[in-house]
């Protein structure tokens, strides 16, 4: 087939051209914002319009990055944080889904536990931080538990809501075939909720990051959250800014990972 698609009507061609133009323009704007932002920052700092001791500046951030890399610490810190996040994320998702399944299974249990879920959901989980540190000790385990505390309840509620919203008639259909509760779950409730569960995953990634960074603020000896807190304490804004940028990139990449997973898992169906 030729690249020009000769059968296209002129209207269609004009439309496609317009779509392409808008796309290009979008990307130009996106990249310009980034470039402009850092350029203005750099120039303003060089011209002493802003105090680079407080605001840092891109060239100093690059130097900090190179130093971190040369000392071999860069990937250690990134690795620790990412590992904690992934661990919190995976445990939170699996545990949350399992608890949601249990609550779906027994209407009585879910009804009985409802007030506790409501209270736990509205409680700011950061407040539990000191308790975790004392119970579990200052280390990665406490940080993962912190991430769990933040993401778990939301996962349970989100997934349970999906389960409970399953089409009654789809359930009736499998019941006409004599399905028991387990079969209702495996044949209808679970598969029909895969999109809802993936949405829960998306929310979860963000919450796990919040939990891990909060945890690292409170206890850690390594990780991006640690670098930020440490940088702040010794007034090294270069380190703080660099870490924030790395954090932003890592979080975005992990989110994209979930989006990719969503595409793979729901490839065969419309969501």
């Amino acid at each position: 087939m030729s690249k020009l698609e000769p059968n296209l009507s002129p209207e269609r061609r004009a439309y496609l051209k317009k779509v392409k133009l808008v796309n290009t323009a979008t990307w130009v704007v996106r990249i310009s914002i980034l470039v402009l932002f850092f350029t203005i920052w750099e120039i303003a700092a060089n011209l002493k319009l802003i105090d680079s001791f407080i605001t840092s500046q891109p060239s100093r951030m690059v130097r900090t990055l190179v130093n971190l890399y040369n000392s071999g610490d860069l990937f250690r810190h990134i690795g620790v944080t990412c590992l904690e996040t992934v661990a919190g994320f995976i445990i939170g998702t699996i545990l949350g889904t399992l608890i949601a399944v249990m609550l779906w299974w027994s209407k009585f249990v879910s009804h009985a536990l409802e007030p506790y879920l409501v209270v736990l959901n509205s409680l700011p989980k950061v407040a539990l931080g000191p308790i975790f540190i004392i119970w579990i000790g200052a280390g990665p385990a406490a940080i993962i538990v912190m991430a769990l505390a933040i993401s778990l309840i939301v996962t349970i509620l989100e997934v349970l809501n999906g389960f409970l919203r399953t089409d009654e008639d789809q359930i009736k259909l499998v019941e006409t075939f004599g399905a028991n509760r387990l079969q209702v779950f495996t044949k209808v409730v679970f598969p029909s909720n895969i999109p809802a569960m993936i949405n829960a995953l998306k929310v979860n990634v963000g919450l796990s990051w919040v939990g891990v960074i909060t945890g690292e603020f409170l206890v850690s000896k390594a990780g991006l959250g640690y670098l930020i807190v440490y940088g702040g304490q010794v007034f090294q804004l270069d380190l703080v800014m660099t870490s924030v940028i790395i954090l932003a990139i890592a979080a975005a990449l992990m989110y994209q990972g979930v989006v990719w997973l969503q595409k793979r898992l729901t490839g065969g169906q419309a969501t």
């Binding site: 089409d167 008639d169 259909l173 006409t176 029909s192 895969i194 065969g268 169906q269 419309a270």
Partner: peptide, 15 residues
Amino acid sequence: DKVGYMLQKDYLFDW
């Protein structure tokens, strides 16, 4: 299994 039930919609599962 002597009885088959047809509901108001087809309820074929998308997945």
